[in-house]
């Protein structure tokens, strides 16, 4: 039974990787099709709100978009193309295909993780391979949640690209057959601590990707402020405004940070049960602390003049780098008590 489930799990995860590759290709086409497309004109109505003209209900409802200076008055750039061969329509179609494939990939991915757990008769969090497949699933689920909640399909290319890398590395490099848990992990705190860390990790990842897009888009907006409207072409102009992207990035981080705090706290309590101390500056603990401090700095940066926007986004990326280093660097090269990587 264990063998069957384990191999089913492997097959599901292989398939998920392939489906993610296809989803990524669809999103590549989505971007490519939009290469020569002018910036859409939808940004005009929030500009009205900002400019102080009285508006009606429908327009006021949209004013959640704060005024975005550079986009004002791009209405002229909108071009009505006939249906069918419309590149915008084609780009959108590939985007939808990418999303559908991602949903399929996530279903396979989730099935793979669940069957891995069933095969091992425990939560699938006993080795670095299992952490990687679970963590990447958290990233994928967080993305789908954002698509539902904030129509964040614009993250598709970056998310599927990252999922291909994460899951691909997991199944090719990190793979370990189903094994037992070492005694140190025989605790219900494993479920609490690792699930909180995985979910907040997934959210940090999405936050970092959104920050990357924010940086790209805001650079574009800064450059375009000087140039004329016709130079605004390509997929990046079809994204929400830099400010709207930043808001999504902030919300994701704001969700992840308290959860990360909780994950570290749960780890500390578990450490007391397992090792007799709450906090011992084990390398994993040090880097969890560093990640916490950097994301705390990110939240402060957003409230500090001169640090808002671009600088804060770089702080968020730095925080993500420390998180990844903790997962990869410390597991592979570090010593210490958290050495369950099975590497």
């Amino acid at each position: 039974m264990t063998e069957t489930l384990a191999s089913l799990s492997n097959n599901a995860l292989y398939s998920a990787t392939v489906v993610y590759v296809l989803a990524m290709l669809a999103h590549v086409l989505e971007w490519a099709m939009a290469r020569d497309l002018p910036a859409p004109a939808v940004a005009a109505s929030p500009a009205l709100v900002g400019s102080g003209s009285p508006v009606t209900g429908a327009q006021a409802a949209r004013s959640g978009y704060p005024p975005t200076g550079p986009v004002n008055g791009t209405g002229a750039a909108a071009q009505a193309l006939p249906d069918g061969d419309d590149p915008a329509e084609r780009s959108d179609r590939f985007g939808r295909i990418g999303l559908s494939l991602t949903v399929l990939g996530v279903l396979l991915h989730a099935a793979g993780v669940v069957m891995r757990g069933l095969a091992a008769e425990r939560v699938p969090w006993g080795s670095m391979y299992e952490f990687a497949i679970t963590g990447s699933l958290a990233v994928a689920v967080a993305y789908l949640f954002l698509v539902r909640r904030y129509s964040a399909r614009w993250l598709g290319l970056l998310v599927t690209g990252l999922l291909v890398i994460l899951l691909g590395l997991a199944v090719i490099v990190l793979y370990r057959p189903v094994g037992p848990l070492v005694p140190a992990l025989h605790s219900y705190w494993l479920v609490i601590h690792v699930s909180a860390a995985a979910v907040s990790g997934g959210a940090f990842t999405i936050g970092a990707l959104a920050s990357v897009l924010f940086l790209m888009r805001s650079r574009l907006e800064r450059k375009a402020a000087a140039a004329d409207a016709s130079s605004r072409r390509g997929f990046l102009w079809r994204l929400p405004s830099a400010e709207a992207i930043d808001r999504v990035a902030y919300r994701v981080h704001a969700f992840a940070f308290p959860l990360w705090t909780f994950a570290v706290l749960a780890g500390a309590i578990w450490a007391q049960y397992a090792w007799g101390r709450y906090w011992g500056w084990d390398p994993k603990e040090v880097w969890a602390f560093i990640t916490w401090v950097v994301y705390a700095a990110y939240l402060h940066a957003r409230a500090t003049v001169g640090w808002r926007g671009t600088a804060a986004a770089y702080v968020a990326l730095f925080g993500f780098a420390t998180f990844i280093f903790n997962f990869v660097g410390i597991n592979l090269f570090g010593s210490g008590l958290h050495s369950y990587s099975g590497m």
């Binding site: 390398p283 040090v286 602390f289 401090v293 705390a296 700095a297 420390t322």
Partner: peptide, 15 residues
């Protein structure tokens, strides 16, 4: 903000 960064950097050598 600067102190937070310093704290993060200062914690690194210990790992």
């Amino acid at each position: 903000l600067i102190l937070l960064f310093l704290l993060a950097v200062a914690a690194i050598p210990g790992s």
